[in-house]
Design a protein around this nucleic acid. Structure first.
Lengths: 171, 171
DNA sequence: TTTTCCATGTAACTCGTTACATGATTTC
DNA sequence: GAAATCATGTAACGAGTTACATGGAAAA
């Protein structure tokens, strides 16, 4: 829920940045593990500003478009700390769509199950390749750690799929 | 997104049911693997009715409150088929909050990392126990399959956590 | 007789996305 | 001169939750 706030506060922890720059940074450096839409970032920054978690001032370099530069306030730092700890400890209770689908998998013939799950397995292969293609962000960087978690989850799902594909192939 | 619709359509596949009954059934039989709020179910049923995917008629038994009984239409059956295949093949591109948190884990001391991830690991233990406690829904039932997937995912995350807890314990 | 069960909803709100809108400037 | 980049937003919508509201009937 507040994961976009966490993301933005985290980026402002080390440097002050303007909105465009933030979106740019996310796109270029974090898009492998995180997603946020440009307009969501802009309006979340507005919200954080309104709630006093970030401060904003306008800067203008030469005759370029004016930039809204955001910086973390003390309150924002506290919020970051809280959201970080929360995100690391809290299991999000959301059910994956896939698991809802599995509940009804008996509506399909074994052949179609195999076909659909194989398709999913291929999609996972692609996602894993994409993760492996991104360059390391340096020794023990959070991005690398996050990516390693994602990869592990994808691999686990792939294994689960393989075992069930095999099972229904023999049916 | 449409996973609640899938859920509801799926329940109406085999029998006609009224709203309360549906909520009751989910709570008693599916709450281990799926969640939907009562009011969400009611309004989603309304929406499905408005879009012609389910039909509704009112029944009254004795002097009990009137029930709105829903049944799947041909259109609804098609939608179910489509959503089912979609849910089984599509990877949802959503980032877990946890992974957003991991990006910033370097903001914490190794000790605190260990402490927070251990807390998460314990929460996962509890979730796994809860899954293991629920009775089987019968040979190869979708619910059991869904639960097995969830369990596998939880175990994978637990392993990942253990390896990182160990790593930071030595730091 | 009080609590639980049956049975339904609505209104307000949050979070986020999509699509749209603007306008200057630098690069090709 | 056209296209990409810089830089910002708004409005409408979708999905879902929370909290609130109702009212009779059965069970304790």
């Amino acid at each position: 829920m507040n994961q976009r706030k966490l993301l933005l506060l985290g980026l402002l922890r080390t440097e002050n940045r303007h909105g465009y720059e933030i979106n740019d940074f996310i796109e270029k450096n974090l898009s492998a593990c995180i997603e946020i839409k440009r307009s969501t970032a802009y309006s979340t920054l507005d919200a954080l500003c309104a709630s006093g978690h970030v401060a904003m001032h306008v800067e203008q370099a030469g005759n370029r478009p004016p930039r809204k530069v955001y910086s973390l306030t003390a309150e924002g730092g506290k919020l970051f700390d809280r959201l970080l700890r929360e995100s690391l400890t809290k299991l999000d209770g959301t059910t994956a769509s896939f698991e809802t689908g599995l509940v009804y998998i008996d509506a399909l013939s074994p052949e179609e199950r195999v076909s659909l799950l194989s398709k999913r397995a291929r999609a996972i292969d692609i996602a894993i390749s994409a993760l492996e293609a991104i360059p390391s962000h340096g020794d023990g960087s959070g991005v690398d750690i996050s990516v390693s978690h994602r990869r592990r989850m994808l691999k686990a799902e792939h294994e689960w799929l393989s075992s069930h594909i095999e099972r229904w192939s023999r049916a």
